[in-house]
Computed example of a mutant assay.
Amino acid sequence: MSRLLREPNIPDPDGFYQALIEAVQGLSPDEALAFSARLNLLLANHVGDREVLAEAIAAARKPD
């Protein structure tokens, strides 16, 4: 049974996307990549479940 939530679950997804865009505005490509890595690690720590994180990594590797 999949434990990774795949249904939309972010209130105001467009607003969240806009916040992400604004967070990297003015950063160099390397700085934006470092920001993304830090954000990923913070969110992974928040999730905290290795099985869910492994499922998310596998899902993110698929180009669908």
Rank of each mutant, 00 (worst) to 15 (best):
E22G: 08
S36C: 10
D64Q: 07
D64V: 07
Y17H: 12
R61Q: 08
R61N: 06
E51C: 02
L4T: 04
I57N: 05
A58Y: 02
A56P: 04
D64A: 09
A19P: 02
N9Q: 14
E51L: 06
L43M: 15
A23C: 03
F16Q: 11
N40T: 10
L39W: 07
A54T: 00
E55Q: 14
A56M: 14
A34H: 09
A59E: 05
D30V: 14
L39N: 03
A32V: 03
L53G: 03
Q25T: 11
E51M: 02
R6H: 05
D30E: 15
D14G: 10
P11W: 09
P63G: 06
N45C: 01
A54W: 01
R38S: 14
L41M: 14
P63W: 06
A58I: 08
A44M: 12
A23M: 04
A60N: 12
I57Y: 04
D49Q: 08
D14V: 10
V52H: 02
S36E: 10
G26C: 13
F35D: 00
D49Y: 01
Y17G: 04
A59P: 00
N45L: 08
M1L: 15
I21A: 09
I21G: 01
D12F: 05
H46I: 07
I10K: 09
N45F: 08
D12G: 02
G48P: 07
R6Y: 03
L53N: 03
K62D: 11
L42C: 08
L39G: 02
R6E: 10
E31N: 08
E7C: 05
A34N: 11
A60Y: 03
L42N: 14
G15H: 08
L41T: 12
D14W: 11
D64H: 06
M1W: 13
R61F: 02
L39S: 04
L27C: 01
G15F: 06
A59D: 02
R61G: 09
A32W: 01
R38A: 15
L42E: 14
V52P: 00
Q25W: 08
A54P: 00
R61K: 10
D14F: 13
P8V: 10
L33D: 11
L4G: 01
E55V: 03
R38K: 15
S36P: 02
E31S: 13
A44S: 14
K62W: 05
R38N: 15
A37I: 11
E51K: 05
G48I: 06
A23G: 05
L20S: 08
D64Y: 05
S28D: 15
R50L: 02
P63C: 03
E31F: 03
G15P: 06
A37D: 08
S2N: 13
A60V: 05
L42K: 14
R38F: 09
R3E: 02
I21P: 00
L41C: 06
G48D: 05
L4C: 03
N40F: 12
D14K: 14
A44D: 07
L42S: 13
L42R: 15
P63D: 11
S28Y: 12
P29V: 07
I10D: 04
I10H: 08
S2D: 10
A58V: 10
E51F: 00
L53H: 04
L41R: 15
A23V: 06
G26T: 12
L43E: 09
E22D: 15
A23K: 09
R61Y: 04
L41H: 14
L4Q: 01
D14P: 01
H46P: 00
L4D: 03
L27T: 01
V24W: 01
G48A: 11
A60D: 04
A58M: 11
N45M: 06
